[in-house]
């Protein structure tokens, strides 16, 4: 398929170009999937992903409801050690340094990062190019459905 067939008759900015499905425009984040494993921050070659998180104790379930922990549970039903989970505080991607290599999207074990084909996010101030997690979630609504 030639480029002429791919582009609609109208020109930008009146009409948006038709982009292929895996176009790398901007990265979107599903915060619920992220476990702060730090793999994307470590693998990023540009050092442009900033993650802050903290640990929180998990509220314990009742005497009959708690799942079996590694050690055998005490007769009262409570596991001996207080369990903690990691809560994501800050997830930011600095798009002024990002080289769109896709390593973070590929390495994420929990499918929290996805590609969107949006490209219209030029800014007047370079600090606005660091997208925090609320803005990264907004990009999620522009991610195309995966091909069947």
């Amino acid at each position: 398929m030639s480029d002429h067939d791919r582009q609609p008759r109208g020109e930008y900015p009146e009409t948006l170009p038709e982009l292929p499905p895996r176009t790398r425009g901007v990265i979107a984040l599903i915060e619920e999937n992220c476990t702060s494993c730090m793999l994307c921050a470590r693998e990023c070659p540009a050092w442009c992903i900033y993650i802050d998180s903290h640990k929180e104790p998990v509220p314990q379930a009742g005497p009959t409801g708690s799942p079996v922990s590694r050690g055998s549970p005490a007769p009262s039903g409570r596991s001996g050690r207080e369990r903690t989970r990691v809560v994501l505080d800050r997830f930011a991607i600095d798009y002024s340094i990002c080289m769109y290599c896709s390593i973070c999207v590929e390495v994420c074990p929990f499918d929290a990062l996805h590609w969107s084909s949006e490209f219209e996010y030029a800014e007047l101030d370079i600090r606005e190019l660091t997208h925090e997690k609320d803005r990264l979630r907004e990009w999620m609504w522009t991610v195309p459905a995966p091909p069947a």
């Binding site: 930008y12 769109y100 490209f119 030029a122």
Partner: peptide, 10 residues
């Protein structure tokens, strides 16, 4: 500042 590596012509 136009972000991208490289940015689209559009």
């Amino acid at each position: 500042y136009v972000p991208g590596c490289p940015p689209r012509p559009e």
